[in-house]
């Protein structure tokens, strides 16, 4: 159990979403960067769809009320734990109840997991790398700093976070408002029972550490997004498609879980006979919608189920995860992956 001390700009519960309701006007929603989300659950031995916290620009601070195994994935960020009233070797001064389920550091204490970086008076500070599980003890405070690059982080806890599901999912859909409310200061977060089933360990083995699931380039380097042409590429012709691939795009500030706006001096222009209105049609995550100003919007997981602007291309699933890590100002290039 945790108490929320600070949320940063936006912290939401997300799981695998609620697919299967699009015909009722409900979008699938779910973790914006699915690869990083799945990795977080794997690191703590959860079933793949257990609810985790999704943060934007870090800034999350949780007081730990019960000892727990946690992991942070996603954008490279500073994660540290402050532990008051610290005993020898950085262990809590009070007796620690054994973990239920064998965490990798049970009994050994956190010093084998992370370096003891500072000891200020009686409070110790432990830095923890991302993409690795670690144990936090009752009384600790867990801090997630702003990422060096990229945007979103996932904090998973063994057993998953609890919340009343809506249409089978604990994801917050920012477009329709379905799902649990955003995290707020003072909120208590309980854990659920979403551990991985023993028989599933073959395809979903627990791991102590993982490679970063989603590639985030160094600052200044463009993020490359793989795009498949269509279905409405005929409205833009080869010239429009080339403009999309050749233009240096910049991530706009008006971006959220619904979509990422891209900006460039070069516009993706429709053909003279392709400018007419399009009847609303079904949308998917990764769809590149081109409004009349020629500046595309990349739809993320909370996209509307239907839309009326033509879709020139659709990102690959892996590139939807990458796009979810774009922060305002980040450069973007599209790579044609049409077969």
């Amino acid at each position: 159990m945790f108490e929320v001390l600070r949320t940063g700009p936006l912290a939401l519960l997300q799981d695998a979403g609620r697919p299967g309701h699009a015909h009722l006007g409900v979008t699938a929603s779910g973790a914006a960067d699915r690869g990083s989300f799945a990795a977080a659950n794997r690191l703590v031995g959860n079933r793949p769809g257990a609810a985790a916290i999704e943060t934007v620009f870090g800034g999350l601070e949780l007081r730990v009320l019960r000892t727990a195994l946690v992991a942070v994935t996603g954008a490279p960020a500073t994660v540290f734990v402050t532990r008051p009233a610290c005993g020898p070797f950085g262990l809590p001064a009070h007796p620690v109840a054994p973990l239920n389920g064998a965490g990798p550091s049970t009994g050994a204490g956190p010093t084998t997991e992370a370096g003891l970086t500072a000891e200020t008076g009686r409070t110790a500070v432990f830095a923890h790398p991302t993409d690795r599980s670690f144990v936090v003890f009752a009384g600790d405070t867990l801090h997630l700093g702003p990422p060096d690059r990229g945007l979103r982080n996932y904090l998973a806890v063994r057993s998953g976070f609890a919340a009343a599901p809506t249409l089978g999912s604990r994801s917050t859909d920012v477009l329709s408002g379905l799902g649990p409310p955003p995290l707020a200061q003072g909120m208590l977060l309980e854990t659920a029972h979403d551990v991985a089933a023993a028989h599933a360990s073959g395809s979903w083995p627990a791991a102590d550490f993982v490679r970063p699931a989603t590639h985030i380039p160094r600052a200044g380097e463009p993020l490359r997004l793989s795009v498949l042409r269509g279905p409405r590429d005929d409205r833009f012709g080869d010239a429009g498609w080339r403009a999309l691939l050749d233009a240096p795009w910049t991530t706009g500030s008006a971006s959220n879980r619904v979509g990422v706006r891209l900006e460039s001096p070069i516009a993706v222009e429709p053909l003279p006979d392709g400018a007419g209105e399009l009847p609303s049609e079904g949308m998917v995550a990764g769809a590149l919608q081109v409004p009349p100003n020629g500046q595309p919007v990349v739809f993320l997981r909370d996209h509307p189920v239907t839309g009326g602007y033509p879709v020139i291309g659709v990102l690959t699933e892996a590139s939807v995860d990458r796009a979810a890590q774009l922060r305002p100002g980040d450069p973007v290039r599209f790579v044609d992956r049409t077969e």
């Binding site: 697919p19 309701h21 699009a22 015909h23 699938a28 009847p279 049609e281 949308m283 998917v284």
Partner: peptide, 17 residues
């Protein structure tokens, strides 16, 4: 198939990965 989404003149069929 995960989702079948009718619209004005289209039906979108979303398959499982």
């Amino acid at each position: 198939v995960v989702d079948v989404v009718p619209a004005e003149r289209t039906v979108l069929v979303v398959a499982r990965p």
